[in-house]
Amino acid sequence: MKLLSRIDPMVRLLVVAIALASIVPATGAARPVVQGVSNAAIFLLFLLNGLRLPRAEVKRGIGHVRFLLPLALWCFGGMALAGKGLSVALEGSLPYLVALGFLYLGVLPSTVQSATAYSSLAGGNVASSVVAAALLNVAGVFATAPLFAALGGGAAVSMGAGGLAKVFAMLILPFAIGQVLQVRLADWTARHKSLVTWMDRISIAIAVYVAMSGAVEQGLWTRVSPLDWAILLGGVIVFLAAGFAGAWLLSGAARLERPDRIAFLFAGGHKSIAMGAPLAAILFPPAVAGMVLLPLLAYHLLQLVASAPLANRLAARSQMSQAPDSPG
């Protein structure tokens, strides 16, 4: 029980969603019902995001251009191209949609909660981390789907008028409503922070369940062999290492102070399943979404596993550099 309690609650929910989809997938007459529940949950998720992001923080964060500009370029430029490269490199070794998932992973924005938590643990600039991750997620609402289509995902998703309308109705509109209602509901959101967090997690888990149900119906566990899983895991590890290393080197090139470099590291190396799972449910049919999400699901787990010891090591080094010289 102690070991279970140490596992991130989001990871536990994702495992439950995948297991449930494998045992009792939403198929046939149940699929439209579950899809409707998922759509409502996604709408609620982005409504809550709009409620929680104070406009004053957005305005303050936008002023830190030397931090935000290279971070945005890395997140939607460097990481997107790395995802494209891995997608092309692995296309002959993995099922097409799974390989395409690396491109989808590359164009996603950073996480908010985990990047901020690990930045705080490592001694990073928490304010910069919170605002940067939040702004990247706002940008991701507008940029991720068109960028994915432009870099070669057009075979899986068509960003025509219908696609743009779905993105607007399910992501942008509820976020805008949340921002408008923020003045009236900010106190309620603050008082019920735990409830809102769990509503977030459950919304994401529902989206993953729907996507995985479609993939299971299409033969996920027979189409993806053990060798495919090993190659997938290897690709995710390479992408994770490139994400963290590139973010650290770029923050150094930008001459950021160490606390900002640490915030940059986690915001630049993490990828958001809170954006990725709901957006995939909107853009792709369930059978496609489940396969495309496989790299993101593996990445989400590994970024949490890698970030804990990395944050501890950075924190230890920061304490050593700040410690007074010993006498003698």
Rank of each mutant, 00 (worst) to 15 (best):
G153W: 03
H64A: 07
P226T: 01
L293F: 07
G78K: 11
A267W: 03
T189D: 04
S194R: 15
H192V: 06
S110P: 14
V305A: 06
L103V: 08
G269S: 06
E257Y: 13
M159Q: 13
A115F: 02
L94F: 13
A215G: 06
V107E: 00
L164G: 11
I282H: 03
V196M: 11
A150F: 14
F43D: 00
A99G: 14
L94A: 10
I237L: 12
I62Y: 09
T144Y: 01
Q182F: 09
A150I: 12
G77F: 01
A117R: 06
C75I: 08
I172S: 02
L296V: 13
L151K: 10
V131D: 00
L97E: 01
G243E: 01
S213A: 05
S272N: 08
A277N: 04
L181N: 05
F264M: 10
F168T: 11
G235S: 02
G160A: 05
R258M: 08
P259Y: 00
L294C: 13
L151Q: 06
Q35M: 15
V141T: 11
A230F: 12
H270C: 05
G92L: 13
A161S: 05
L227G: 13
L227F: 14
A19I: 13
S93W: 15
R52G: 04
L14I: 15
W198F: 10
L53N: 00
V224K: 11
S225P: 12
V131E: 00
S158N: 12
G63F: 02
F46E: 01
L249R: 14
A253P: 09
A133G: 08
V305I: 12
A115S: 11
P54L: 00
T144P: 09
L90Q: 04
A215K: 07
A277W: 03
R6K: 14
G219N: 07
L220M: 11
L240S: 04
V210N: 02
G246I: 05
S272Y: 03
G140D: 00
G28F: 05
R66D: 02
L302P: 13
A169F: 13
G214D: 00
A247Y: 08
V141P: 07
V196I: 14
I23L: 15
E91L: 06
L240V: 05
I206H: 02
L4W: 14
M199K: 11
L296Q: 03
G153Q: 04
S93P: 12
G77W: 00
G28Q: 04
G61M: 05
L249D: 01
N125I: 05
A230Y: 07
H192R: 14
L94I: 13
V88D: 00
G61Y: 04
F239I: 07
A323W: 14
I62W: 12
A311N: 07
A30G: 12
G154N: 13
A40H: 13
L151Y: 08
S225A: 12
A26M: 12
L68Q: 11
L51P: 10
K84T: 03
L45R: 06
Q179I: 06
G36E: 06
L97F: 05
V65S: 09
A19R: 13
Y209P: 09
G219V: 09
L90T: 08
Q218I: 10
R66Y: 06
F244W: 10
V130H: 00
D325R: 15
M79N: 02
I237K: 09
A247W: 10
S87C: 08
A205I: 09
T189L: 10
